[in-house]
Design a protein around this nucleic acid. Structure first.
Lengths: 185, 185, 185, 185
DNA sequence: GATGAATGAGCGTTCATTCAT
DNA sequence: AATGAATGAACGCTCATTCAT
């Protein structure tokens, strides 16, 4: 009977996203939605109201990630912007391996999602600037980068030891390392 | 695919593996086990007897793949053996993207599986011979190859268009192509 | 039908009744109450204030119907009044088959509802006048009529084709037609 | 963990039908399916296996009713057969008022059900024999009878007092009584 | 050894009801 | 007085697992 304030809608949304992020990572994309609601301290109906499907939850998390990347892109007009973006993107990849399962699901129940295109748009300018400044192999395309990110997902998601995820990502990128300056600080 | 014939234990096992392979690919690793039994024309209890868990089914399929690779390794003592093995391995990867989900599951409910080590053992000799013959970059280690295969999984499994899987694998490998002669026939 | 205008209590009540009438007819008596509120452009809490239970909504619609019948009864002191009333009553029956579900519900969760008695009171005078004028079989009682109306509900509500409702009502009444002059204009 | 014998399939089916018949009558067509399973002493999954939808359960009950009627029709070649059939049919109607709700549902989610046609086929011969023998008004058609049965549903289902159901059916039929010899033994 | 019906916990979803605003 | 988000019990349904035959 404990009714929270109806005005806590925005807070609930935040709490649900945070719980989803955490439980997706800890227990996989197919964690029970009721567990997410419980973890967020929110009723099942409210979860449903905010995010009618599991995918809506996943896409909302992507959206948050995008916001972070957009902020980086907007704040740094220099040639170093690209590497910051790329590191953050790989960071998201390492943190959210559960989204490979999202991708697997999406292949079977296709959804209209413009994420990749938006990411391309976001990276193009910074990549060009970095290449002009001689920081990145000029032959590398944004498409190559998108593929590389997906490959990193593969490397991480098949890693038995969760603690090794970052190291695996580094090793994976090193396999193409002459072209990309990842890892050198 | 439903068989009405007198079903011996061995035949049932074969039928179950074939159905699992097909349904894992078509409907994903989490397809209902009852669907596999039905597709194989076998009772649910028999599926259970042969493969107590879903993972047992997956590992048995890996085992079949191993057998194919071992046959190649045993039959070709020349320097070209490695590339044949590698191509077949990538072929298996393309065919069974569902096994990324197996890997994801396995991370959460860890199982003692010696697959990677066996694969290393299988590839070491042929790789060395290929490197001696100048066919493959001598700096490439078997560990690099294992990682590369896992990266290919990532590229494929995040590909929305199933028909593009092979092409994506090729593109993924080209990102490291100077070192590996994949694709040149 | 969603109204954005400043909504007074009385307007809300009207809008809710109109939406309930429509949705009961279109989607059945058990349509979600939230759908009625939404359709009326009114908050769920306001629906609640006006009509605490689903049955209150149904009874309020009956009440509106009564008002129409009372107006007819009050306005026509002649012998033809009865048939006008009867036709309108059968009309309401055809329009609101969903109320059979109300009746079914009411049988299980009995409610003190004086509808039938009021209807008897409303029809008695006009029926007597019609019988005196030789327009209706003098052996027919008001109770018979009430039962007949209920029988018409049965005929309509079991009719698969909604468009056939009126025709079914006519056929149903014809089964007792020598006694009642329904249908002859 | 109490597992009943897998061979109790037929018994389970019977138990489910009996429970459904009883609970549909007592608590309405929309009684929880889990309540029916519980009442029958059967798991929910088994209910589902035997009757995938609520409607399947309802139709199976109709089927049982049909079997009873067919047995009467087959066993009595005389002119009195029709009245026995008709009494039994009205008896089923009185017993299973919940099926008005089935009909209401069916109007919204139409289903291909040949019940009425079968009933017509079942009654035609016996009705003709009864009419030849002068037991029933020769002007009465089978279609009239079907409609009459539906009208009886309306009379019963709108009756507040469940104990009055039979009496209401009798009164309802008396409204057309010169034509049909119902009630006189 | 094979069978397939039975089981029931657990999931996603719906919705009447409440209540801070 | 009106709003509409929050709640959570309850439903239909799925499916891994068991076991009498």
């Amino acid at each position: 009977m404990s009714t929270e304030s109806p005005s806590s809608a925005a807070e609930n949304r935040e709490a649900l996203l945070a719980s989803a992020r955490r439980l997706f990572a800890a227990r996989g994309y197919h964690v029970a939605l009721s567990a997410i609601a419980r973890d967020a301290g929110v009723g099942q109906g409210s979860l449903y109201r905010h995010f009618p499907t599991r995918l809506d939850l996943a896409l909302a998390i992507f959206e948050e990630n995008f916001t972070v990347l957009e902020r980086i892109a907007a704040s740094d007009p220099g040639p170093g912007c690209f590497l910051r973006l790329w590191r953050r993107l790989i960071g998201f990849t390492v943190e959210s391996t559960a989204f490979v399962e999202t991708a697997v699901d999406a292949r079977r129940q296709p959804v209209d999602y413009r994420g990749p295109e938006r990411l391309v748009g976001l990276l193009s300018g910074p990549l060009a600037r970095a290449q002009e400044a001689g920081l990145v192999d000029p032959a590398l395309t944004v498409g190559d980068l998108m593929l590389l990110q997906r490959m990193v997902y593969g490397a991480i998601v098949t890693e038995v030891d969760p603690a090794a995820a970052s190291a695996v990502a580094v090793r994976a990128l090193e396999l193409v390392d002459e072209r990309l300056a990842w890892g050198e600080d």
